[in-house]
Amino acid sequence: MAWLRASPPKECPHVRKPLRKAVLPVAGLGTRFLPATKQMAKEMLPVVDKPLIQYAVEEARAAGIEQFCFVTGRGKTMLVDQFDVAYELERTLTERNKTKELDMLRAQALPPGSIVSTRQQAALGLGHAIWCARSFIGDDPFAILLPDDLMLCDVSCTKQLADAYNETGGNVVAIEEVPMARVSSYGVIAPGETAGKLVEVKGLVEKPKQEEAPSNLTVIGRYVLMPEVIGHLSKMEKGAGGEIQLTDSMAKLIGTQPFHGLRYEGRRFDCGDKAGYLEAQVAFALSRPDMAPAMQSIIKKYA
């Protein structure tokens, strides 16, 4: 499999804009969690007491994101409803003097007009999902958060990417090392020069065979991209798995704009996988002072 190699980086062609937008692709069916996801969106699966989609939105807000676009599928209106005002619930909490719960709900509320949704009618890949948000993205830089990748970080992973974008003025993706035997499940970078936690991206390939992978540095579900990627996605070129791969269009930005991978600080949990989801329950409970003693006691029972 050929992978794309960059020519020397050129000056970023557009004026650097503040990062204020995020796209959340949430159209998947969640078949690995059936029957739980027969009626419920997989992004509504809770970790301790918050759904996955809530964690993603809160992470983005911590990075200064103000506008959100959910790329949804059929039967996923509950994802938008999660961030709507629940008047009946708030009235009931008020009547029962549940001030703590009421304050929590109101603190999580988003300003009116902060969320829009668009529909991905066919499962044609992540690249196609991002293309579906093209009107929302416009000419602005934007973050992408895949809620299946749940992040446990002292500093929001998206905030780490936003800070790197402010430093470099170009595309930044969160990266982590995986065993070479697993690279065929990821987008993989061909690394260039390293400066601190930033790694220059010289090339990208989606799901390479182990023997063809340029490294074991893989892209996870957090990105900050420039709007020019939409022009490449618009060509609807199919890649690995017969899908429109975001990685392929990102690779075409290399050499025309700054492009870096960020070795983020924190832990990722693959909540699209049952084992990863269960591990996330344990890790997030242990990270909370109100839940850690109970979780430690539970773990001892089964040790």
Rank of each mutant, 00 (worst) to 15 (best):
L4V: 11
A6Q: 15
H14M: 04
V23P: 03
L24P: 06
F33W: 07
K38M: 10
K38S: 14
M40F: 02
M40T: 09
L45T: 01
P51S: 13
I53Y: 00
E59A: 15
A63V: 01
G64P: 08
R74K: 09
K76L: 13
M78C: 10
F83K: 03
F83C: 05
V85T: 08
A86R: 13
Y87P: 05
E90R: 07
R91K: 13
T92M: 06
T94G: 06
T94K: 12
T99S: 13
K100M: 07
M104L: 08
G113H: 13
Q121S: 11
Q121W: 07
C132E: 12
S135E: 15
D139M: 04
D140R: 10
L146V: 11
M151N: 04
S156F: 14
Q160C: 07
D163F: 12
G170K: 08
V173I: 14
A174W: 00
V178M: 12
A181K: 15
R182S: 12
Y186F: 15
G187S: 09
P191T: 05
P191C: 03
G192S: 01
G192R: 02
E200A: 13
V205I: 15
P208A: 03
K209C: 06
Q210G: 03
E212T: 13
V219T: 00
V219R: 00
L225K: 00
E228N: 09
H232I: 09
S234V: 01
K235I: 07
G239D: 00
G242W: 01
E243C: 08
I244D: 05
L253G: 10
G255W: 12
G255H: 11
P258S: 14
Y264R: 05
E265R: 08
E265S: 15
R268Q: 08
K274A: 08
A275T: 13
G276N: 06
Y277F: 15
A280E: 09
V282Q: 10
F284S: 07
L286A: 01
R288F: 01
